[in-house]
Design a protein around this nucleic acid. Structure first.
Lengths: 156, 156
DNA sequence: ATCCAGACGAAACAAACTTGCAATCAGATG
DNA sequence: CATCTGATTGCAAGTTTGTTTCGTCTGGAT
């Protein structure tokens, strides 16, 4: 019984379904996992409250809404002083075109995933985000030719 | 009027909401964008049919389901012959731990986003995905220390 | 053996989604 | 300039889905 424990096999089965399609009716989920609809609903609610489910969202095809270009950027900073790193994080978060931003170990400090309409837009973005930021030492761009697999699904 | 044209400002407003929370009642969306609930519903349906909305999913916190480690991998291949590239794509797609896979230009050929429970798991994965694949020339790993911003939201 | 907390299912209930229909608007056509 | 056509809208009815209630059951601790 999943009291304050995190996850039992029912929860995992439910998550697997919701990560594919969260419009699946609770009754259908119930049948799939051998549970009643209310039981499913209670488990979903708990997982939302505990943050296991971070959000419920629609995934949009970037190309079909005018953002056909996806880019990766490795950013290396000059100084790793905490306040400068935090400032960089805030500046990346604030930009809608920055879909994802990770602070990483290795040859780079940040990795960004960016979507834009045109390369000119990206050029303008680099100006704002990198050239105008004195703490950015250098950055390296990769252009996605094929979005082979795109999702945030986590194996459960 | 959004006939076969892609998107008008209503659609964009609806998408902006659904990308944040697709459990928002259509009536509430209607109020927000000044449209009746059925009108909202018909627009959503069309966007789903045309693939503008790729999917409706729950986002799960990887750390809370036992996958606390996120990794980036740049993969460089030996040969870019089409059939070898396709084989690589297929092998990456097939692995659940590979959340995202992009075929890119630049110093690398693929960029992968991977989530795992432990570094030992990652080590095992590298064995399967990279060392056992003769076409992988080299790969470079970045470990995420902070998932600063994680989403697939597209500005509309 | 008893009690208690947590979880369950069935059924009633409420809310949301979906559909049919008449009215409206914009642009094309005669 | 009137009319026609196609697309979209809002309303209201109908249907599906989500939510709450309530009585029961199980397992663990006293």
């Amino acid at each position: 019984m999943p009291a304050s424990q995190s996850l039992d096999s029912f929860d995992r089965a439910i998550l697997a379904i919701l990560q594919k399609d969260n419009t699946t009716p609770q009754r259908a989920i119930g049948e799939a996992v051998n549970l009643s609809a209310p039981a499913v609903q209670r488990r979903i609610k708990r997982m939302e409250e505990t943050g296991i489910i971070r959000a419920n969202v629609a995934l949009v095809d970037p190309a079909k809404v005018g953002h056909p270009i996806t880019l990766f950027v490795e950013v290396e900073v000059e100084s790793e002083r905490a306040e400068l790193i935090d400032a960089a994080k805030r500046s990346f978060i604030a930009v809608p075109e920055v879909q994802q931003c990770y602070y990483v170990t290795g040859d780079a400090d940040f990795i960004l995933v960016i979507t834009v309409a045109t390369m000119a837009d990206y050029e303008a973005l680099t100006r704002r985000l990198f050239f105008e930021n004195n703490n950015v030492k250098r950055f390296r761009t990769f252009v996605a030719m094929d979005r082979v697999k795109v999702g945030l699904e986590v194996p459960v």
